[in-house]
Nucleic acid binder design. Structure first.
Length: 959
DNA sequence: GAGCACTGC
C-alpha cells in the first residue's frame, strides 16, 4: 500500500508498539512519533491489542506539538477500507419500514438523546433490546399498551453516540437532561430572573449541582464498565497488559501512601499571634478594659446586665476576671456558659494562663464527660447544657454569685431555658445572684426588655472594616455564581485567602471539584495565574482532614476554604480577607404534627449575613461578596435566625422543666414561646410514656427518666430494660443511637462499605445490628484498625463508649442516692434478644408501623402505615430490614423526610407486645365494631390526640 | 435503592 500523508481523516497502517491500561501506542512507519489509540476504540472494534500487531487506523486528531490520536472504528481490518456507519442507514431504513407500527420519523440525534436520557433516569417503561449484529433493530413489539400517537422508541444502548458527536458527549448529555428537567418544570410558574426571591431560589436548587451529579453517575458507570471489561478480556491472557496494570496499581498505592504521609506530617500552625507584651499589658490593651469600672458598677447596681460585645473585645476572658478581682468570687463561683465544648475548654485554658494557675484550680471548666474543677475554683467555664442540668438539682443556683450567659444571641435551647430559670432564681435570691447576658447588636433591646428593662452595655470590638458588595440581580444558580466569583476574586484581586459558605457536604464537594477543574484549564491558558488551593470543611469530615484548612498557603499561592456554617462560629481561620456568601443555610425543621424531621435549605438571616461578612475582617480590611441583592438583604431576610426552641422536639426539655417543678409549661416565661402544637405534642408524648399522670404531673417514672441525658423514649426504654433483664444490651444500643452515624461510606467505595455493613445485619433489625457492632468492636479491643477495616466511624464509636460509661456511672449514683428505693441492677439477657426488643417496644410503641396490605393493588411495594397517624412511611435502604420479606410490624427510632418519609433504625416486633407493654395505648381490635378495612388491622390505637386540645390529660385507655 | 446544617446533656 502507498503511504498516505499524515493528516486528519487519513487511514494508515501501523504497529502496536506498547499496550497501556488506557489504550495502545501505535507506530506509523515513516513517522518518528507514536500515536495514541484509546482503549474504547479497541473495545468497540473488538480487537485485542497485542504488542507487535499490525492494524489499520484512522487519524482523528493532530495537536500542535505533533502528537496524534488514532481511531479504529468502522475500519475493516482485513482491507483497511472504511465502512459507512451502520447506524445512520439502519435507522432510516427501519423507520421507513415501520411507519405502520406507530413510529414517527426521527433522526439519529433524537435516538441518541432518548437513549441517554433513559439510561440516566433508568426509566421504567424503557425496554432495551439488544439486537444481534445482523439485525441491530430487532422487530419491535408494539402490543404493550401504547395508544395511537404515543410513541415509545426501543433502542439498543451500544455505540449509539454518533461518532461525529463523540467529543461533545458530555455537553450534549448535560443539555439533554436540562431540557427534560425544563420540560418537567413547565407547569410550574416561571421564575423571573430579575425579581426571584431567595425562597424561590432555595427551593429550585442549583442546576449545576444536578448536572454534575448526573454526569458523575454516568462517568462512574462507564469507568466501572471499562474496568470490568478490561479485566475480563485483557488481564489474564496478556502478559504485557498484566504487567502494566500491576505497575499502575503499585503506583497508585505509592501515591496513596504519600498522601497519607503528607497528611500526617502537615501540622497545625501555632494559634494566635505571639505577643511581646506582658500578660498584664495584653489584658489592658483589650477594648473591654476601657469599660471595666463602669461595667463593675453596673453589675453591682443591677441584677441583670446585657452586654453587646463585638468580636475581639475580650469580654469572654476578661469580665469573669474583673468580677473575681472585685470580690464577687468570695460570695460564690463566677460561671460563664458557652454553647460549645471546645470554647469552654479553650477559654478556661487561656484564663488560667492569665491568672497563672493550673486549669481546674482557681479557673476550671465543666463539660459532659469531663469535670475539670476543684474546691478552689472561682471562675468556671461550662457548656450551657451543663448549667441547665445543674438547675435540676439546684434551681436557685446557690453555688454561684454571678452567671454570665455568653454567646446568648445564638439562642440554643439550653440558653433559652436558662433565661427563664435565672430570671426566677434572681428574684428569689434577692440581690445575691447577678446575671450577665451577652447579645448581638440587633436584639439587645429585646433582651433588655425581657430582663426587666436592664441596662445595655456596648463594648467595641477590634476588627477591621469589611466592604460589602451585592449582586445587581438575583443569582438563580447560587453554586454556579459561587464558583465564578471564587475564580474571579482569585484572578483579579490581591493576596488574601477566601472563605465560602455553602449549605452541605454534597454542595461543597461539587464546588471544590468544579473549581479545580476550571482552574486547571486556566493554568494552561495563562501561566501567570497563581495556584489556588481548594480546601473543603464540614463537621462530618474526619478531623485530620479538617486540620488542613489551618495550614498557611505557601508564598505565591492562595487558599480558598469552602465551608458550611461550621466556619461561622465554631471555627476561626486566620488570614481570610475575602468572604463569599451565597446567602443560604441548611436547617432542621421539625414538624410536631407528624413528629417528623426534615432538612431544608433556606435563606440566612441578617444577623447570620453580618456574622459571615465579619469573618473577612479579622486580620485586615476585608471584602464580602454577597450573592444576593441589597434589596433581598433588606426586605427578604429575617432579622434573626429562628431560635432552636421553635424548631425542635421539646419532649426532653419539657420533662426537665417538669422535674424542676415547673408545671404549667404553657405559662413558662419563654423569651420566644414555642408553637402550642409543639408543646402539646411533647406533653402528649410524656403522658403516653407514663412520665406524666392524668393531671400532667410528674410520675415516679418521669422523675427517674429526667435524670438521663437522652430523649424520653430512650430513657423509658432504659428504665424498662431492668424489668426485661437486658440493661447492658439496651445501654449499648442507646449509646450507639445517641452518636452520629457509625457507618462510614466514602464516596468512591460505597459498594464495598455497604457489603461490609451487611455482614453485621441482624435479621431482627437495626437496633440489634448496632449492638452487634458495638460488641464486635469491644471484642477487638476497641481497635481503631478494626473500625477502618469495617468502614466504621471510629470517632462515633469512641463517643458511644463514653456515653455507655457515663450511663453506668449515673445508674450507680442513682442506686446509691435512693437508699434502696430504686434498685436498678445491671444485667444481661445473654442471647435472649427478644427481651431487648420488648424493652424498646415499651419506649417506642408510639413509633410503630404496620406493613400496608394495599388491598390487592400492588402499585407501591414496601409501604408501611404508622399506627398513630396512618402516615405512609418506608424502610430506609440502609436498614437491615430493607426488602426483607415477612416483616409486618416494626418500631423505628426516628422519621426523616427526604425523598420519602423514611424510618431510620427499624426493628421487627411482635404486635402482641404492643398490647402487653403499651396497654394504655393499644388494644386488640374488636371484630364487631370495625369495618372491613379496619379488620385487617388487628391492633388499633386507643388514644385520639385530636379529640380536644387538652386531650393529653385524659386517659381513654381506662374505659 | 438512599443522602447526613450545627450543637448540647
Amino acid at each position: 500500500m502507498k503511504s498516505l500523508k499524515l493528516e486528519r481523516g487519513a487511514i494508515l497502517k501501523g504497529f502496536i508498539s506498547s499496550v497501556k491500561p488506557f489504550g495502545a501506542f501505535i507506530s506509523i512507519p515513516g513517522e518518528n512519533k507514536q500515536g495514541l489509540c484509546h482503549i474504547s476504540e479497541f473495545e468497540s472494534s473488538k480487537i485485542t491489542p497485542n504488542k507487535g500487531d499490525g492494524i489499520f487506523v484512522k487519524v482523528i486528531k493532530i495537536t500542535d506539538d505533533g502528537k496524534f490520536s488514532l481511531g479504529l472504528r468502522n475500519i475493516d481490518q482485513k482491507t483497511g477500507i472504511e465502512t459507512i456507519p451502520r447506524t445512520n442507514v439502519s435507522i432510516n431504513e427501519h423507520i421507513s419500514n415501520s411507519t405502520n407500527s406507530g413510529f414517527k420519523r426521527r433522526n439519529d440525534m433524537d435516538v441518541w438523546e432518548r437513549t441517554q436520557i433513559n439510561a440516566a433516569y433508568g426509566a421504567k417503561k424503557q425496554r432495551l433490546v439488544r439486537g444481534d449484529d445482523d439485525d441491530p433493530f430487532a422487530e419491535v413489539d408494539s402490543s404493550d399498551g401504547l395508544s395511537e400517537g404515543e410513541e415509545e422508541i426501543e433502542v439498543q444502548l451500544n455505540n449509539q453516540i454518533p461518532k461525529f458527536l463523540d467529543p461533545f458527549k458530555d455537553k450534549l448529555l448535560k443539555n439533554a437532561l436540562r431540557r427534560v428537567k425544563e420540560g418537567e418544570k413547565s407547569n410550574m410558574r416561571k421564575i423571573n430572573p430579575k425579581t426571584a426571591s431567595l425562597e424561590t431560589i432555595a427551593s429550585t436548587g442549583s442546576q449545576l449541582m444536578k448536572d454534575v451529579k448526573l454526569s458523575k453517575i454516568e462517568k462512574m458507570k462507564m469507568a466501572e464498565k471499562k474496568r470490568r471489561e478490561l479485566q475480563k478480556s485483557q488481564y489474564f491472557d496478556d502478559p504485557v497488559m498484566k504487567e502494566n496494570l500491576e505497575k499502575q496499581q503499585e503506583n497508585e498505592a505509592i501515591e496513596e501512601k504519600a498522601v497519607i504521609e503528607w497528611k500526617k506530617q502537615s501540622k497545625f500552625e501555632s494559634y494566635g499571634i505571639k505577643s511581646k507584651l506582658s500578660i498584664q499589658e495584653q489584658r489592658e490593651s483589650l477594648p473591654v478594659y476601657q469599660s471595666r469600672g463602669e461595667l463593675l458598677k453596673a453589675v453591682r447596681e443591677n441584677d441583670f446586665v446585657v452586654i453587646v460585645g463585638e468580636t475581639g473585645s475580650g469580654k469572654t476572658t476578661q469580665i469573669t476576671q474583673y468580677l473575681a478581682e472585685d470580690g464577687f468570687a468570695n460570695r460564690g463561683i463566677i460561671a460563664c456558659t458557652q454553647p460549645r465544648r471546645v470554647a469552654a475548654i479553650s477559654v478556661a485554658k487561656r484564663v488560667a494562663d492569665e491568672v497563672n494557675c493550673k486549669v481546674g484550680d482557681e479557673v476550671g471548666y465543666t463539660i459532659r464527660f469531663e469535670d475539670c474543677t476543684g474546691p478552689n475554683t472561682k471562675i468556671k467555664y461550662m457548656t450551657d447544657g451543663m448549667l441547665e442540668r445543674e438547675a435540676l438539682v439546684d434551681p436557685l443556683m446557690s453555688r454561684y454569685s454571678v452567671i454570665m450567659l455568653d454567646e446568648a444571641h445564638e439562642r440554643t435551647i439550653a440558653t433559652d431555658i436558662l433565661f427563664a430559670l435565672l430570671k426566677d432564681a434572681v428574684a428569689k435570691r434577692k440581690g445575691t445572684l447577678k446575671v450577665i447576658v451577652t447579645s448581638a447588636t440587633l436584639d439587645s433591646t429585646k433582651f433588655s426588655q425581657y430582663f426587666n428593662n436592664c441596662p445595655v452595655f456596648h463594648i467595641k470590638g477590634r476588627t477591621f472594616p469589611v466592604k460589602i458588595y451585592y449582586t445587581k440581580t438575583p443569582e438563580l444558580d447560587y453554586i454556579e455564581a459561587t464558583i465564578d466569583t471564587v475564580i474571579d476574586v482569585h484572578v483579579n484581586n490581591p493576596d488574601g485567602d477566601i472563605l465560602v459558605f455553602l449549605t452541605g457536604r454534597e454542595e461543597i464537594e461539587t464546588c471544590c471539584e468544579t473549581i479545580i477543574e476550571k482552574m486547571s484549564i486556566l493554568y494552561k491558558s495563562d501561566p501567570n495565574i497563581k495556584e489556588l488551593i481548594v480546601l473543603p470543611i464540614y463537621s462530618a469530615m474526619p478531623s485530620e482532614m479538617q486540620s488542613r484548612i489551618f495550614d498557611k498557603a505557601p508564598p505565591g499561592k492562595r487558599k480558598v476554604v469552602i465551608a458550611t456554617n461550621i466556619a461561622e462560629t465554631s471555627i476561626t481561620i486566620d488570614g481570610i480577607l475575602y468572604v463569599i456568601d451565597p446567602g443560604f443555610v441548611k436547617v432542621n425543621a421539625y414538624d410536631p404534627k407528624r413528629s417528623m424531621d426534615s432538612l431544608i435549605i433556606q435563606p440566612i438571616s441578617k444577623a447570620q449575613a453580618d456574622q459571615r461578612s465579619g469573618r473577612a475582617g479579622r486580620t485586615g480590611p476585608g471584602v464580602c461578596y454577597r450573592l444576593y441583592t441589597k434589596n433581598a438583604y433588606l426586605k427578604e431576610m429575617s432579622l434573626n435566625t429562628k431560635p432552636e426552641i421553635l424548631r425542635q422536639n421539646l419532649s426532653h426539655t419539657i420533662l426537665m422543666l417538669k422535674a424542676m417543678g415547673i408545671n404549667d409549661i404553657l405559662k413558662f416565661q419563654f423569651m420566644d414561646k414555642p408553637n402550642e402544637d409543639s408543646i402539646l405534642k411533647a406533653l402528649e408524648e410524656l403522658y403516653i410514656l407514663e412520665a406524666l399522670d392524668e393531671d400532667g404531673l410528674l410520675t415516679e417514672v418521669g422523675r427517674l427518666m429526667a435524670h438521663f441525658p437522652m430523649e424520653p423514649k430512650l430513657s423509658k426504654t432504659l428504665i424498662k430494660s431492668f424489668e426485661f433483664g437486658c440493661s447492658y444490651e439496651v445501654i449499648e444500643i442507646i449509646s450507639m443511637l445517641s452518636v452520629p452515624d457509625v457507618f462510614f461510606r466514602p464516596r468512591d467505595k460505597r459498594e464495598l462499605a455497604d457489603k461490609m455493613k451487611q455482614r453485621f445485619d441482624d435479621y431482627n433489625g437495626d437496633h440489634l445490628t448496632l449492638l452487634k457492632i458495638y460488641r464486635k468492636w469491644e471484642n477487638n479491643g476497641f481497635s481503631k484498625d478494626w473500625c477502618t477495616d469495617n468502614f466504621i466511624n471510629e470517632k462515633s464509636m469512641r463517643k458511644a463508649k463514653n456515653v455507655k460509661k457515663q450511663l453506668i456511672k449515673l445508674l450507680d449514683t442513682l442506686n446509691g442516692k435512693s437508699k434502696g428505693k430504686i434498685n436498678l441492677v445491671l444485667s444481661s439477657c445473654d442471647n435472649k434478644f427478644d427481651q431487648t426488643r420488648k424493652a424498646f417496644v415499651s419506649g417506642f410503641f408510639e413509633n410503630c408501623a404496620k406493613k400496608s396490605t394495599n388491598h390487592g393493588r400492588n402499585d407501591e411495594d414496601g409501604v408501611f402505615k404508622t399506627l398513630s397517624d396512618n402516615l405512609s412511611v418506608y424502610i430506609h435502604p440502609s436498614s437491615a430490614l430493607f426488602k426483607i420479606p415477612g416483616v409486618e410490624y416494626v418500631i423505628y427510632h426516628t422519621l426523616v423526610l427526604t425523598n420519602r418519609e423514611y424510618m431510620h433504625y427499624t426493628t421487627k416486633i411482635d404486635p402482641v407486645w404492643l398490647i402487653e407493654y403499651a396497654s394504655k395505648v393499644f388494644r386488640r381490635a374488636n371484630e364487631g365494631e370495625l369495618g372491613i378495612n379496619k379488620k385487617r388491622e388487628r391492633i388499633q390505637p386507643l388514644y385520639n390526640k385530636f379529640d380536644t386540645n387538652e386531650s393529653w390529660r385524659l386517659s381513654r385507655g381506662r374505659r
